[in-house]
């Protein structure tokens, strides 16, 4: 009897099943989003590569401007005048929509690097921004290492 009751309920339910859609606020990855004031999208830089650190569980994207992309593949170990980079790094989090994936979680930092020539000398302008609000850091220790790190990155293969 219980079975038959269940079956009738199911028949009824399938005819009436209707669930509200998930709201946009629950779907936008708020903690990984960049503050609007940073205006990354207005730089129109393109992805050079993406990478992950499996020990620190971070994930990063390295962007570059047109100049970088025009000479990709060529030797750019020391950088070339006119190149401009942005490196964004996030803590990873589990993807609530797919068991088997990790996606960007808390925003950790953004780093910018521009390369210029002045009197046949290469000048690097490096700046780090930290935390959810991407606060500009005044401390410059370790900057030279970060410049080398950014310039050492190989481009991803993209047809």
């Amino acid at each position: 009897m219980k079975r038959i009751l269940n079956i009738s309920i199911v028949l009824f339910a399938t005819l009436n099943s209707c669930k509200p859609l998930t709201g946009a606020d629950a779907l936008i990855n708020q903690k990984a989003s960049l503050p609007e004031s940073f205006r990354l999208s207005e730089l129109h830089q393109k992805v050079i590569t993406s990478f992950i650190n499996n020990r620190k569980h971070t994930t990063s994207i390295l962007y570059g401007n047109k100049v970088v992309h025009s000479i990709l593949g060529a030797d750019r170990a020391n950088g070339n005048s006119g190149e401009s980079f942005t490196l964004v790094t996030w803590q990873q989090q589990d993807d609530a929509h797919w068991f088997g994936a990790r996606i960007p979680g808390d925003l950790i930092s953004a780093e910018t690097l521009t390369v210029a020539d002045s009197n046949s000398q290469t000048i690097y302008h490096y700046q780090k921004f930290k935390g959810k609000e991407l606060t500009k850091l005044a401390d410059t220790t370790g900057n030279a290492d970060r410049v080398r790190f950014i310039l050492s990155k190989k481009a991803s293969i993209m047809p």
């Binding site: 859609l21 998930t22 609007e36 609530a96």
Partner: peptide, 12 residues
């Protein structure tokens, strides 16, 4: 229920 999309988009 999310218009068949997995990605939680990030604002840049």
């Amino acid at each position: 229920d999310n218009d068949f999309v997995f990605t939680f988009p990030i604002k840049n």
